[in-house]
Write a protein that binds this DNA or RNA. Structure first.
Lengths: 205, 205
DNA sequence: GTCTATAAAGTGATAGAC
DNA sequence: GTCTATCACTTTATAGAC
């Protein structure tokens, strides 16, 4: 094999590990499976990382940093006026479409959270993961307000947390039941509720 | 060791496994750890069960069947009239109090769901688990309607699913952040939303 | 029935040749 | 740097003495 710098090797191993975790789960992501995915020898793993836990830290940080807004497609400027209720509904649909498009990824994200919650000393990684979720949700809420000319009546951080609560619950229930119709009903309900409780239009202010 | 019937041994092993899974997680619940918890030899395990997977099936069925309504304390008849909004809020609080009282149990329930979702052929167990959650939620909603003299405007099965979505999301976020105040805000929001959208009082009907 | 002992396969990590 | 070979340990499961 060609000589690869330690940093490149680390990056390649993390990318391989991400694929393995999504495809086969955290428990199956052993060092041997990961190096096979990366096309390396087992010894190369421990040349790049001192331990499997060290890779796991880098892995979680990588997927968390790479987390992008699944709500974005619904937040494009549209012709004519658009209601907050409809933007929230469309944003939830965008999120849900992303879940349906790659269920293994979502399963993996939950598994990583729970792995971090169990592994002594790794709880901060789970916190970081959720801080990122909250931040992504909050910026989507801010964009939605700008798009509709409204203002959130409660602190956006508070509503963001509610939104993450909702998307987590929605995702788990769907991963278990695969019931698209039930998911749609949940999203309708949530959009109606957010419309009634969460914001005021600027013209009302 | 005294002679124990196979069925008794199975039951004892399942009870031991439940404790181990709650305390140390699914991944740490090896046959050795489980038999140690039950005070048996390793060979006794395979006398009672043909495989670890067979125990896992029985384990999940046991915790799912034993699932009781965490909403119940809030559904006791009270003096004077009580609004649906307040019953929902109190029910969520009862649920949340149970989570706070035994976080390891909740962590274990999520882990078991995800284990079943990953293990080939075990998805039906995860379905069963959520069917039970939905049923528990639905009966709580029916009891709440009776208590307040109201009627749900949508099918209770639909609202039950929303309720489970909410409690799942609430639980995960709290397990990660341990933020009681944020959880309270989420519950307030959810109670307000359910009050505005989900039911009609019988006097309106 | 219940045990000890062990098989067979997997794990993370390392030594040492090249 | 990169490899093969291996260590020390753990896993599920079983054989066979009692």
């Amino acid at each position: 094999m060609p000589r690869i710098s330690a940093v490149d090797r680390r990056a390649a191993l993390v990318r391989a590990a991400v694929r393995v975790v999504a495809r086969e789960g955290v428990a199956a992501a052993t060092t041997r499976v990961i190096v096979a995915e990366a096309g390396m020898s087992l010894a190369s793993f421990h040349y790049a990382f001192t331990s499997r836990d060290e890779l796991m830290v880098e892995l979680i940080n990588a997927v968390v940093d790479g987390e992008e807004s699944a709500f974005a497609p619904a937040l494009q400027p549209a012709e004519g006026g658009v209601t907050m209720r409809d933007v929230v509904r469309a944003g939830l649909q965008s999120f849900f479409d992303a879940v349906r498009a790659d269920p293994d990824r979502e399963k993996a994200m939950f598994e990583l959270t729970q792995w971090a919650l169990r592994e002594p000393g790794f709880e901060p990684l789970a916190r970081r993961q959720y801080d990122r979720y909250f931040a992504v949700a909050e910026s989507a809420l801010t964009a939605a307000a700008a798009l509709t000319g409204s203002e959130w009546r409660r602190p956006t951080a508070e509503i963001a947390r509610m939104l993450v609560t909702l998307t987590d619950g929605l995702t788990i229930a769907w991963l278990v039941t695969r019931d698209d119709a039930a998911a749609a009903t949940t999203m309708d309900f949530a959009a109606d509720a957010s419309g009634m409780l969460g914001y005021i239009s600027l013209s009302d202010a």
